[in-house]
Design a protein around this nucleic acid. Structure first.
Length: 465
RNA sequence: GGCGACAUGGCCAAAUUGGUAAGGCAGCGGCCUGCAAAGCCGCGUAUUCCCGGUUCGAGUCCGGGUGUCGCCUCCA
């Protein structure tokens, strides 16, 4: 079967056929860097990480662009409230964002363009739109005239007329300088509360609207038409819809071929909010001692279009699943001698994994294939049927699939220190002496210090709890 | 109010564009073990939210209802 994705444009699964064979241009909406990112944000970034890793696994040469929104209303407000310059705030949270990504094992993008470094590119697009009659000015700001783009609403499947009705009851049109409440700003004239945040350009003194940055930076690094654009569902309207409008009107070319949107994350089945006390940044969770890999597992293991429920029970389950995989690797590492090379089993696992992921990134099915493989191989290890070659092949397969999931890596803990090893050996001697009381006491003692002893036919195995 | 998504065993979560319910976690029994742990085997009667309909056959399609969530106000 071919690789296929659910395209938000058509609301159907479509076979992935990139604009250029063998390559994939990918743009993902990045963070607004005025605060620490929360796990809901990372749900989306993990989905995008899986997408990119899988595209590479399938042999595509991926160019991944993720923007950093570093000028925007909330950031400016923070500047005003704290008296700090814009760059101080965005610099700090950009660093935090990259640290968090590393903590979760998210592969870096090829480009992280920042909005403030691409003002000229935005101005160029706005100029093109103005020349083609898609804009108008009001009080120094420049707006996009929605009615000038007949295709508006194609992505979110919104009806323009209904939008107007919906807005009329809830939006005070007097607050808007626009001709039409649905029009959006391309360029915002400077106002006093913007403080030091402005650019002097041919469009006047001001700053860009939010939507224009993504169009400008996506097209700069990926071209006027590219393959995949991702983001959370909440960005579908109006952000992505506006991006399509301004981009296609400016270039006259189709903007994006495949739109993929991830569903939201809820925490303990409730919407994440500070008032409910279930609002978590990644840092909060790590400080509580939760293994980042378990967090990655939970964020990864639910299909991206399914609402993901982040619960501490789920973290526990994820930890168990992870240790099953780690234990499996430990067992394999101890296998010696001749026996089955597992070539068939490995191939069957990889095929099942690939077929699952090909189907719109069905990661649950992919993980199931791996667990089936683990059970199958464990059974044969029990039977003494596996050879060193087989163990090596199985480990190589896990490594290969880990390039997609990022959760199959071997444990990184250091070797047990000498005093632990000494006591393990002392326990062995006690067992040989049939002094089981002493043996068990030593085992309990080590367990309390975080070391688990497992007796195997080849002697004791020591691992971290 | 408008548009849309989702609703599967105790928990998490799949099901190839309809064919008779993966996988993980937890639990119970067994094998193995001095005892454990790990591993393996077995075990859940799942009204697949409810009510209708189409079909030889529906978790999968259609209609209605209920619930949760999202968007419609620059929140992934």
């Amino acid at each position: 079967m071919a690789l296929r994705f659910q395209n938000s444009l058509s609301r159907r699964k479509e076979v992935f056929e990139p604009l250029e064979a063998g390559k994939a241009g990918l743009y993902t909406c990045g963070p607004t860097i005025y605060n620490f990112a929360h796990i809901g944000n990372f749900r989306t970034y993990i989905f995008e990480d899986l997408l990119k890793r899988y595209l590479r696994f399938r042999g595509y040469e991926v160019t991944h662009v993720m923007n950093l929104t570093d000028v925007e209303d909330k950031i400016i407000r923070t500047c005003r409230e704290t008296g700090q310059p814009l760059a101080a705030i965005t610099g700090r949270y950009a660093r935090a964002f990259f640290e968090d990504c590393e903590t979760l094992g998210i592969d870096p993008a090829d480009h992280y363009p920042a909005a403030t470094e691409h003002i000229d590119d935005m101005v160029a697009i706005i100029r093109a739109l103005r020349e083609k009659g898609h804009t108008y000015e009001a009080n120094g700001s420049i707006y996009f005239r929605l009615k000038s783009f007949p295709g508006y609403g194609r992505l979110s499947h919104m009806d323009l007329e209904q939008l107007a009705e919906g807005a009329s009851g809830r939006v005070d049109s007097d607050e808007y300088e626009t001709e039409d409440a649905r029009d959006f700003a391309l360029w915002k004239a400077w106002s006093e509360e913007d403080g030091e945040v402005y650019w002097e350009t041919e469009l006047g003194k001001g700053r860009p609207g939010w939507h224009i940055e993504c169009s400008a930076m996506a097209m700069k690094y990926l071209g006027p038409s590219f393959d995949i654009h991702c983001g959370g569902v909440d960005n579908m309207f109006p952000h992505h819809e506006n991006e399509i409008a301004q981009s296609e009107c400016a270039t006259g070319k189709p903007y994006v071929k495949y739109w993929l949107h991830s569903a939201h994350l809820v925490v303990e089945n409730k919407k994440m909010s500070k008032s409910l006390g279930n609002f978590h940044t990644l840092r909060d969770l790590v400080e509580k001692g939760i293994d980042p890999l378990a967090i990655r597992w939970v964020l990864l293991a639910t299909h991206y279009r399914q609402p993901n429920n982040f619960a501490f029970d789920a973290i526990d389950a994820a930890n168990q699943s992870l240790s099953r995989i780690r234990d499996f690797r430990l067992r394999l590492a101890e296998v010696k001698g001749p026996g089955d090379d597992l070539a068939e089993a490995c191939e069957a696992c990889e095929t099942a994994f690939t077929e699952a992921l090909d189907d719109d990134l069905n990661i649950s099915g992919g993980l199931a294939a791996v667990f089936d493989f683990i059970r199958d191989v464990n059974k044969r290890v029990d039977g003494g049927l596996i050879g060193a070659d087989g163990a090596k092949n199985a480990l190589a397969l896990l490594d290969k699939l880990d390039s997609v999931t990022g959760v199959f890596a071997p444990p990184t803990e250091a070797e047990a220190p000498q005093d632990v090893i000494d006591r393990v050996m002392a326990r062995q001697q006690a067992r040989r002496d049939k002094d089981f009381a002493r043996a068990d006491a030593l085992r309990d003692e080590l367990l309390a210090e975080g070391w688990i002893i497992e007796d195997t036919p080849d002697g004791p195995r020591v691992k971290r709890t």
